[in-house]
């Protein structure tokens, strides 16, 4: 087992465990912290796949900006008060069972797909480098890129409009 595989397994276990903790923690603040762990683990995967640009962006945007946003929201609202009552236990059970079923079905369905034995390039390959993606982004994808700025603008305006008091 070389170092790459070791890293892969480590990051995978970390991602799954953190994700489970996200959905099982009682306190939402802990959930947010565990979610940051998930993002880090996934960024690690990106590094492993030599997708450096995405790894960085993932940390900056998700772990940085979005999670901070979440924490700000917790600051604004009283989390304690909204702790969940313990009724409807069966519906939680049903949710867990449904998720499990979906997992089972998908795994069973994809167990024998024909790309099963193909390899994903790790550690090498330079498409994920900032330079290459940048060229791609500002040549072929420049129009969507610019449109996404309009999306951000409208999201900003929308958030302000919704958050405004009356």
């Amino acid at each position: 087992m070389n170092i790459t595989q070791l890293l892969f397994w480590f990051l995978s276990v970390m991602a799954l465990f953190s994700a489970l903790m996200v959905i099982t923690s009682k306190n939402p603040v802990y959930s947010v912290l565990w979610l940051i762990m998930v993002f880090f683990a996934i960024s690690g995967h990106y590094f492993l796949l030599n997708a450096q640009f995405l790894a960085i962006v993932n940390i900056i945007v998700y772990a940085g900006a979005i999670m901070v946003l979440f924490l700000y929201v917790f600051m604004l609202i009283d989390v304690r008060k909204s702790s969940e009552p313990q009724k409807y236990r069966w519906i939680r059970l049903a949710g867990a069972v449904a998720g499990g079923c979906l997992l089972l079905v998908l795994v069973a369905a994809l167990r024998n797909i024909d790309i099963k034995n193909q390899l994903a390039e790790v550690k090498t390959g330079n498409i994920g480098l900032i330079k290459n993606l940048g060229i791609e982004l500002f040549t072929n994808y420049v129009v969507p890129f610019e449109i996404s700025s309009i999306l951000f603008l409208s999201a900003m305006v929308g958030a302000v409009m919704i958050g405004k008091k009356e």
């Binding site: 799954l16 489970l20 959905i23 949710g95 867990a96 998720g99």
Partner: peptide
Amino acid sequence: LFCIGIAGVLTRRNAII
């Protein structure tokens, strides 16, 4: 990961979670 996410949506009722 996806199914964990779905299970979370189904089991939790806190909108932020």
